[in-house]
Design a protein around this nucleic acid. Structure first.
Lengths: 220, 220
DNA sequence: GCGCGTTTCAAACATCTGTTTTAAACTGGC
DNA sequence: GCCAGTTTAAAACAGATGTTTGAAACGCGC
């Protein structure tokens, strides 16, 4: 019996490459395996043969592209402000890039909106490390632990803003038709979210101190 | 021929009342009309008889509950800061309220994430007026038009934050298990988003002025 | 070139779910 | 109390779509 050799996995690879953009654009449920197979030039049965079922393919797509170095949090370096911008940029950048690593963020956002059983692995392998990074960054800014409530609230404020633009396009284009996702406007948007959040984070840090001194004033 | 009298619409009303929470919790596609009919104590054919099809029922549910005064932005009064908090509260409050008017916000958020053909009417009748209100509010704060880019960017920053908590619970509970949607924490969250946004908006106003004076310095 | 495990393919299958059908039950007016 | 129009009910229907089947094609080692 011959084990699966690299050369034999051509169809498997083609399926993974074809499925990524489809799942990223349409989400798990709306994506049709007949569509994916057509793009991959493969028979529908190939999905079952190579991955067991649709969810198996989906899970493998997630694993297959999580290694994309472009999204490596290690790339985000420098001053806290620059790091924050790097984080926001990482999230928004995926709008344009159609290359393999980039649609991964769309996959993540799809999964956040419409979770599948793959959510657990995705959280563990991708989301949690980046969430932690963001919390450490914010905590550092306001002199709080990364586990502090205020720190995590701020983290979700940052993520929420970026996410909004990536998944609410249909509504945004109706209430604000002038807004377009050109590269220039993406930069503008990145700058806005960064500046807006920076101010919000600083204010949160001050409020926290205020509350603390207030408690101190009340005595113990 | 007898026209549809009020007393004849018992089934119709029961269907609308039963469908609201189901659509709000699961969205249009995941909601099953057999489930809705079972809750309403009606036959599946009743949906087609009274509303034509599933989308007809969905659209009527949207119309049926849009009049809910709880979500009336006119109720949001006071200083700009208080108005902003009122707006945020309006969005978040729907998490708990299981009463008729309250799950409407969930319907709106579902529609924003997974639009149906009903999106146009929803934008026109519900979203746009509130978006305009928010923009006027923010514009007033930073001395800009409600149509200014910076104003609208800030508006989306506010909406994005609130929306995040209402639709990403699955992820939030995994990266931050301690967070719960108790009434107290909902107040805390409302306060946080308001304060965070207030700081962000003020900073955006200042940046704008800075840019303007910079342009002025460059001469014309 | 034979044999055996591997891979591909077209077709059939199964299920879920919105929709339609057809007849029966009901309701109010005469 | 019957009739016309209205409403309800159970069942059948139809389309989309994930899954399985069984046979054919392939490819490597002997």
């Amino acid at each position: 019996m011959r084990k699966r050799a690299a050369s034999d996995e051509a169809t498997r690879i083609r399926l993974l490459e074809a499925a990524g953009p489809v799942f990223a654009a349409q989400g798990f449920h709306k994506a049709k395996i007949r569509d994916i197979c057509a793009r991959a030039g493969a028979n529908v049965a190939a999905v079952n043969y190579h991955f067991g079922d649709k969810l198996g393919l989906y899970t493998e797509v997630l694993r297959y592209s999580v290694s994309a170095a472009v999204l490596d949090p290690g790339l985000i370096t420098g001053a806290p402000e620059a790091k924050l911008r790097g984080f926001v940029h990482m999230m928004l950048d995926s709008v344009f890039k159609a290359t393999r690593p980039a649609w991964y963020m769309k996959l993540v956002l799809q999964e956040m909106s419409n979770p599948t059983p793959a959510i657990d692995e995705l959280v563990k392998e991708f989301i949690r490390p980046r969430y932690r990074l963001l919390c450490e960054l914010i905590g550092e800014m306001i002199g709080q632990s990364r586990n502090a409530r205020i720190t995590q609230l701020c983290a979700h404020s940052v993520v929420g803003q970026a996410r909004h633009y990536l998944i609410a396009n249909i509504v945004i284009e109706r209430v604000w038709p002038q807004f377009r996702f050109t590269p220039d406007e993406l930069e503008e948007l990145t700058d806005h979210i960064t500046a807006f959040s920076l101010a919000g984070i600083k204010a949160a840090g001050k409020t926290r101190k205020k509350i603390r001194s207030k408690s101190a004033a009340w005595g113990k």
